[in-house]
Computed example of a mutant assay.
Amino acid sequence: MRTYTVHLPRDAKPGDPAAYERATLVRDGFNWAAFFFSVLWMLWHRLWLAALLTLIVLVAFSMALDALGIAQDMAALASLLLASLIGLEASTLRRWTYARRGMPIVDVVSAPDHDAADALACRRFMDRAAAAASVPVPPPLPPRAARREEIAPFGFSAEGAR
């Protein structure tokens, strides 16, 4: 089973099919495409800021390895480790970017593939509106008048001062 996060715009109303059409599912876990094609993968997913920062880090990392005179096999291993880190954190970068753009995580689903996850997330999103409609809302409590002797600064009670 794979885990997916569901991202919807902040103004999405539960049960609105048009709102769910804008949903985005992000699979959690290692991303092989981001491992092999880090900057291109980020540009494909419109992660502009992450792509720019990754490009800067990759170039600076390569220049630092050359400046330090690191052997080619060790430099290749270090680059492989950096690419592994990018592959591990690629989904997190997508989630961060969606949250920054006003599409926070609204649900997490586990399913064998993307289509099953989409169907499950859609069903849960539509059922959430039915559940919200069936729960009665209690009436608001009447305002309580504050008595002068009940108000005490910094949490100290009036009885403790005697």
Rank of each mutant, 00 (worst) to 15 (best):
Gln72Arg: 05
Ala121Tyr: 03
Thr54Ala: 10
Ala117Cys: 13
Ser62Leu: 00
Arg46Gln: 13
Ala76Val: 03
Ser79Phe: 03
Ala67Arg: 08
Pro17Leu: 02
Leu40Tyr: 07
Trp44His: 11
Gly87Phe: 09
Val106Asn: 03
Leu53Pro: 05
Met42Asn: 03
Ala75Gly: 01
Val57His: 04
Pro136Trp: 14
Ala76Asp: 04
Ala90Arg: 03
Phe30Trp: 00
Arg162Tyr: 10
Pro139Leu: 14
Arg162Thr: 07
Leu58Tyr: 03
Ala121Lys: 05
His7Met: 10
Arg22Val: 04
Phe35Ala: 05
Ala161Asn: 11
Ala60Asp: 03
Leu141Ala: 15
Ser79Met: 02
Arg147Ile: 07
Met63His: 01
Ser110Phe: 08
Leu52Lys: 05
Val39Gly: 05
Ser134Ile: 11
Phe125Val: 04
Pro142Val: 09
Cys122Ile: 00
Trp96Arg: 11
Ala75Ile: 00
Gly102Asn: 08
Phe125Pro: 10
Pro9Glu: 12
Leu120Gln: 15
Ala129Glu: 14
Pro140Leu: 15
Leu40His: 09
Asp118Arg: 15
Ser38Tyr: 09
Tyr20Cys: 04
Glu89His: 06
Gly102Arg: 07
Ala76Lys: 04
Lys13Gly: 01
Val59Thr: 01
Phe125Tyr: 11
Tyr4Gly: 12
Lys13Ala: 08
Val109Gln: 12
Leu85Val: 02
Trp44Glu: 10
Tyr98Ser: 00
Leu47Thr: 00
Val137Ser: 13
Leu120Asn: 11
Met63Tyr: 06
Phe125Asp: 06
Leu93Lys: 10
Val106Ser: 02
Arg124Ser: 09
Val57Glu: 02
Leu141Glu: 13
Leu68Pro: 04
Arg147Gln: 14
Glu150Arg: 15
Ala51Trp: 00
Ala130Ile: 14
Arg94Asp: 08
